[in-house]
Each structure stands twice: as structure tokens, then as C-alpha cells.
């Protein structure tokens, strides 16, 4: 027994090293798990408020660019409003109006150069933001709420190599997938487009209706590069994201009123 303790004492530095290293790697694995909430992240009130002060300074410097971006988005929305006004007069088979509502928030921290990028916004449970909700802004999609604190929330960015978004190509393909490849914050990959479709550069990529996070028809970007190797089943295509993640400053969190109903439906189906 004594020699065992002597052994422990002799290699104490190495043992502490192993212990700390394992603890750090445990944190890495635990943090990458979507469902597990940890206390130490940017949705924590203290951390969030420090990041907010720093973003106030940056926002002040960027005011010109932000104004331009907002006015461009206004113009786009006004255009869409006109289209919708026309459509209101026609009967619709499914009542989707009023299914989604929005919570406005400001980005206080935004990573774009990591592989699993996150954003922090200054709205939390107090404002009705809860994990799992979709986030849009700047005319396109931004991400999904990962953790919600009281006043701040952490968003998994679209720029995360593990995130897949259910998408469609306007007027052509009903279902494909958009996923970021970790390289440039301006581009993502479009996956699972079968080769018998005629894909063209400039096609618009939208969110599909096959998910409960984003409303259907929100722009993701436009096809910028197409590659179809002889032996491939699917296109290898690149989409230029409509959002410039470097200058994004305001976002809207989507509240889907049907989400609890949809979730309970999936759970009962799974049990049967």
C-alpha cells in the first residue's frame, strides 16, 4: 500500500495532467451535445452583459453599414408585402397565417471563423425565446436557439459544420439539404440534389416546409457553383449565402405556435 502511495506521489504531475486533460475533453464533448445545457456559456447573464458592452462599441462604429442593410431589408419586405396583399384575396387551403410570430433581438457576440460558430443575442426566456426556435435576419436564415438564459440566448449559427437545414430550390426541387463546409463564411454546400434535375447557377435556395423551425420560403442564398462528376448520384453544388454574417447586427427569433403540438405528435408516433 505504501509503495502505491509512493507511486502516486512520484507521478502526481502526470496524474494531475491526465485528470485535467480528461476533464477538458469531457467539457468539449458535453458542450457539443445540443440537448445538454451547461452553465458556463455566453447565455449566462454576466458573460452576456460583458459581450453586450463590447458590441455596443462595435455597433456604433458600424452604424452606417447597419442602416444600409436595414433599409435594403425594408425595401425587400415592402415588395413581399405587396405580393402578399394580392394573395390575401385568394382562398388558401391551409391556414398558415398567424402560425409564426417574431421576437426582435440584437446580436451581442458573433463568431464566424470557428467550425462550430455561435451567436449570442440579447433576448432570453423573459422575451419568450426558448431552445429549438429558428432565428432569421438580414433577409435570410441565421440559425437555431441552443440555450436560452434569462436575458441572453446562445444561437447555433448556420455556420456550424454539424448543422443541416432542410431546403428547396425555388421552382425546381422540393427537398434538399444545406450544410456549411467550415471554409468560408460566404458559402455553404447544397446536398442531395439528384442528377436528373436541371440545376443552374443563380437558382434561389429557400427553406422547405418540412421542418418546424423555419417557416417555408425563407431565402438561404443563390447557387454559385455547380459540379456534377460522371459517377456521382448527387450534384456537388455551392450556395452563396444571402446573409453577410460579418455585418449582421439584428435578428428575429421565430416563435412557431404549433411547435408543442407538432412535437407531441412526433413523440406519440415514436412510441407506437
Amino acid at each position: 500500500m505504501r509503495s502505491f502511495f509512493l507511486f502516486l506521489y512520484q507521478y502526481r504531475a502526470f496524474l494531475v495532467f491526465i485528470l485535467l486533460e480528461f476533464f477538458a475533453l469531457f467539457l468539449v464533448v458535453q458542450n457539443s451535445n445540443y440537448n445538454r445545457a451547461t452553465f458556463f456559456n455566453s447565455s449566462n447573464a454576466a458573460i452576456g452583459s460583458i459581450l453586450e458592452v463590447s458590441s455596443n462599441v462595435r455597433d456604433f462604429i458600424n452604424l452606417g453599414g447597419t442602416n444600409k442593410q436595414l433599409s435594403e431589408e425594408n425595401a425587400l419586405l415592402r415588395k413581399q408585402l405587396n405580393v402578399l396583399k394580392d394573395r390575401l384575396n385568394q382562398p388558401d387551403d391551409a391556414d398558415t397565417s398567424g402560425r409564426f410570430s417574431f421576437v426582435n433581438a440584437r446580436i451581442v457576440n458573433n463568431n464566424i471563423f470557428l467550425l462550430n460558430n455561435t451567436l449570442t443575442i440579447n433576448a432570453g426566456k423573459e422575451n419568450g425565446v426558448f431552445p429549438g426556435m429558428g432565428v432569421i435576419g438580414g433577409g435570410g436564415i441565421v440559425g437555431k436557439v441552443k440555450r436560452a438564459g434569462k436575458k441572453y440566448s446562445t444561437i447555433v449559427s448556420l455556420l456550424d459544420i454539424d448543422v443541416k437545414v432542410s431546403a428547396e430550390i425555388k421552382g425546381k426541387i422540393n427537398l434538399c439539404t444545406v450544410q456549411w463546409d467550415g471554409k468560408s463564411h460566404e458559402y455553404a454546400k447544397v446536398l442531395y440534389v439528384p442528377r436528373h434535375y436541371q440545376l443552374a447557377i443563380g437558382d434561389t435556395v429557400l427553406t422547405s416546409g418540412y421542418n418546424a423551425i423555419y417557416p417555408p420560403g425563407i431565402t438561404i442564398g443563390t447557387i454559385s457553383k455547380i459540379n456534377l462528376p460522371q459517377d456521382a448520384t448527387f450534384y456537388d453544388a455551392q450556395v452563396k449565402l444571402i446573409n453577410d454574417f460579418t455585418s449582421l447586427s439584428h435578428v428575429e427569433v421565430i416563435v412557431n405556435k404549433d411547435l408543442p403540438k407538432l412535437d407531441s405528435l412526433t413523440i406519440t408516433e415514436g412510441n407506437e
Binding site: 469531457f26 468539449v28 458535453q30 456559456n41 460583458i50 463568431n111 455561435t118
Partner: peptide, 12 residues
């Protein structure tokens, strides 16, 4: 790590 939401990466 806490500030960049990469818990454990810089620590290890």
C-alpha cells in the same frame, strides 16, 4: 472558452 462558446477546447 466561456466567451467563445468552445468550452474545453482552449483549456485542453
Amino acid at each position: 472558452d466561456i466567451f467563445s462558446n468552445t468550452l474545453g477546447v482552449h483549456a485542453s
